[in-house]
């Protein structure tokens, strides 16, 4: 019990429960499978990117450029798919390769020239995005093949509501889930994953223990790029159009979700559970406001307040903890 009270995740979870109760009391259709499945589909984009950002934060870095990476991956995938055909697998492969390549560029700049990750990725965000917009002429892309459109509507579980409309668990959600499990295994059960925590906690010591720091850096930014590639495809699946400005500008929103989940910007801490709860909190908030018929322009006010309250509470608990430690040392 005491152990749970010390965890950030517990509080986020309680807040989600509280909101859910309030929202359901106003509109019972919030807590239905239909709404839930819908949220799980539409938030898979944010959820997947959040996992990548979590990895970067754990390793002690930060990545701002992933929105541009996702956009580039999405464009290349869309052009290739429309021009040459293919299938879902090639679509993902193309997007992920592009993502990994761009991620590796970030890693090389950060490691070889020892430039802080936030500065590097602010620069590469502008570079990737700028070059893409120039090359693509800023054009929107429509007209995906039929199989691409059908995949977006595919479900692994189909139910029918009272009005006779079909709904269910989307394949897209399943992709998110698969990535989540993969990420969990990496972080928890591989030497690589523990190396990310070690590097985030104390990079010099990680090198002394025998981790190859450059390889860890390459992995983490490549993984971010990989997930950005997948997220790019999913965005294309969800809206069926590719626009240059549909993703760029959302980088801080994703960061906010991860931070709400308790990951530290100083590296070394953060859990998948927390990150997913952070995403859930944002999903519940925005969906709930719609359900309660609050005008959508109130959305950012609430999110902003939640972020401020959450980080203030964390700061308060950190200070309490420090005070406790000092008291222990003094005895």
């Amino acid at each position: 019990m005491k152990k749970w009270l010390r965890r950030h995740e517990t509080y986020v979870f309680l807040v989600i429960v509280l909101f859910s109760i309030i929202i359901t009391s106003q509109n019972a259709s919030f807590l239905t499978l239909e709404n839930l499945f819908d949220l799980l589909k539409s938030y898979s984009f944010l959820g997947i990117l959040a996992i990548g950002v979590l990895f970067v934060l754990i390793s002690g870095g930060i990545d701002i450029s992933f929105t541009a990476v996702a956009t580039v991956a999405m464009y290349v995938m869309a052009i290739a798919t429309i021009q040459y055909g293919g299938n879902m697998l090639t679509a993902f492969l193309i997007a992920c390769s592009v993502g990994v390549a761009l991620g590796l560029i970030n890693a090389v700049i950060i490691y070889v020239f020892n430039i802080h990750s936030i500065i590097t990725t602010i620069a590469t965000l502008n570079i990737f995005y700028g070059v893409l917009t120039v090359l693509s002429g800023g054009k929107w892309i429509y007209g995906f093949p039929t199989w691409f459109r059908e995949f977006a509507d595919r479900r692994v579980l189909t139910l029918t509501n009272e009005a006779g409309v079909q709904y269910g668990l989307s394949t897209i959600t399943l992709i998110w889930l698969a990535i989540l499990i993969m990420a969990w295994v990496i972080l928890r059960y591989t030497t690589l994953g523990r190396g990310l925590y070690a590097m985030g906690g104390n990079p010099d010591s990680a090198a002394r223990v025998g981790f190859n720091i450059f390889r860890l850096q390459m992995f983490v930014y490549a993984f971010m790029g990989f997930l950005a590639g997948i997220a790019g495809v999913i965005q294309a699946l969800l809206v069926q159009t590719v626009a240059p400005n549909s993703i760029v500008g959302k980088e801080l929103d994703v960061l906010a979700a991860v931070v709400l989940g308790g990951a530290s910007l100083f590296g070394g801490t953060g859990t998948l559970l927390g990150t997913m709860l952070g995403v859930a909190l944002i999903a519940v908030m925005s969906n709930g406001l719609t359900m309660m018929r609050v005008p959508s322009f109130w959305y950012n006010v609430f999110i902003g307040l939640i972020i401020i309250i959450s980080v203030s509470a964390s700061a308060y608990r950190r200070r309490q903890r420090e005070r406790r430690m000092i008291a222990v040392e003094a005895e």
Partner: peptide
């Protein structure tokens, strides 16, 4: 409150934009 600047201003950024 001793919140790290990047988090504090991320919060106020969203809030002010919302307002």
């Amino acid at each position: 409150v001793d919140v790290s600047p990047i988090l504090a201003t991320l919060g106020t950024m969203t809030l002010l934009n919302g307002v």
